[in-house]
Amino acid sequence: MSSSLSASVPVDLRVEPVDDVLDEVERALQTQLDRGTLVRKRRSLGARTDRGTWVRVERRRFDKISSQGWNGTECAALLDGVAKPQWHRGAAWRQPGDAVMWRVDETDLLPSAPVGSSVLASEPALSDEWWQTFNRSLDALAEQHTRRVATPDTVMIAQSGVADAIHRFLPDGGDATVKRWLPAHADLNWANMTAPEFCLFDWEDWGLAPQGLDAASLWGNSLAVPALAERVRRERRYDLESRDGKLMTLFVCAKILAPDAHPEDPRLEPARLMAARVAEDLQRG
């Protein structure tokens, strides 16, 4: 394993040498990877295998692996009624001499291409059937039973973190207590769903989260396209109009309006307006 991939320094797999990692995947799963199909992201890799499946490989530091383990994609294989790739097998190993783990999961190929990047700049062509399957999948997910806790951005979500994030919008000390915790994907964005056939993938961070987290996250990733953001709100209004959904809307707005936000991000102004409106609703209610 490459000694340059140390836990002590930031690592970006888009630029690091990864041949040793891919060799380990091939040995662990007894398959050959089509390296011409390799997709490189900051902390994950993906490629097609010689048996017509897909592997996703992720690197994670020990301090980003909670006591519940690190097998979200494997655990998601048990979810009923959710349109997702079928999981086949997985493997994990420690990077020699470092506090870093690698994990690979092998699944079916996606039925269609990802809708786009995580945050869209133009409206995608999505059929009514797509939205119906999207809604059925999110509704089915919320009805599952799990002890897993969601880890958005690899951080386990908790009441304290939610309150810290949204109290900037509730200066009078409004109640930020979450009432309903339901299973959520926890990384719902346009890069993790396919079209024209709907499929939801990248399940490594799913688990219990406040009602409305997924809907609010997708809404936030749609704000550069007002009609799309409004469609998301309309489709998931049951979640977003709930009290916890309003808290999650503020939670997402807090991320968009972070101090290091790019000043030209087109989501800033609609996020400010929505945060003000939702905060007023919560303080009135």
Rank of each mutant, 00 (worst) to 15 (best):
M1G: 09
S4W: 08
S6P: 01
A7E: 07
S8H: 12
S8I: 00
P10W: 02
V15S: 13
E16C: 06
D19C: 00
D20A: 15
D20W: 01
L22C: 05
L22K: 03
L22E: 05
L22G: 06
E24V: 07
E24F: 00
A28W: 00
L29G: 07
Q30H: 15
L33D: 00
G36R: 08
L38R: 06
V39T: 14
R40V: 05
R40N: 07
R40P: 01
R43D: 08
L45Y: 02
L45V: 04
A47W: 01
R48N: 11
T49S: 04
R51P: 00
G52W: 05
T53N: 09
V55C: 05
E58P: 00
R59H: 12
R61C: 07
R61G: 09
D63E: 13
S66W: 14
S67M: 13
Q68E: 12
G69V: 02
W70C: 11
T73N: 12
A76Y: 04
A76Q: 08
L79G: 01
K84S: 11
K84T: 09
Q86K: 14
W87T: 10
R89M: 04
G90M: 10
A91H: 11
R94V: 12
R94A: 14
Q95F: 00
Q95T: 01
G97R: 01
G97V: 05
V100N: 06
R103V: 06
E106W: 08
L109V: 10
V119Q: 15
L120E: 05
L120G: 07
A125V: 14
D128G: 13
F134C: 14
N135Q: 15
N135H: 13
R136F: 00
L138I: 11
L138Q: 13
D139L: 13
Q144K: 09
R147D: 15
A150C: 04
V155P: 00
I157K: 09
S160L: 10
D164P: 04
D164M: 11
F169T: 03
D172Q: 14
D172T: 12
D172I: 00
G173N: 06
D175I: 04
A176M: 10
V178D: 12
V178P: 12
V178W: 12
R180T: 12
W181C: 13
W190S: 06
A191Q: 09
A191P: 02
A191S: 14
T194D: 10
T194L: 08
C199A: 13
C199W: 09
F201S: 09
D202R: 06
W203H: 02
W203M: 05
W203K: 06
G207E: 13
A209C: 10
P210H: 12
Q211T: 14
Q211W: 12
S217P: 00
L218R: 07
L218K: 08
N221L: 08
S222L: 11
V225I: 04
P226G: 09
L228D: 01
E230W: 04
V232K: 02
V232F: 03
V232C: 03
R234C: 10
R236D: 04
R236A: 11
D239P: 01
L240M: 01
S242C: 01
S242I: 01
S242G: 02
D244F: 02
T249A: 09
L250K: 03
P259W: 04
D260K: 15
D265L: 09
R267M: 07
R267F: 09
E269M: 11
A271R: 03
R272L: 03
L273H: 15
M274Y: 08
A276M: 09
V278A: 10
A279R: 07
E280G: 10
L282E: 02
L282S: 03
Q283L: 15
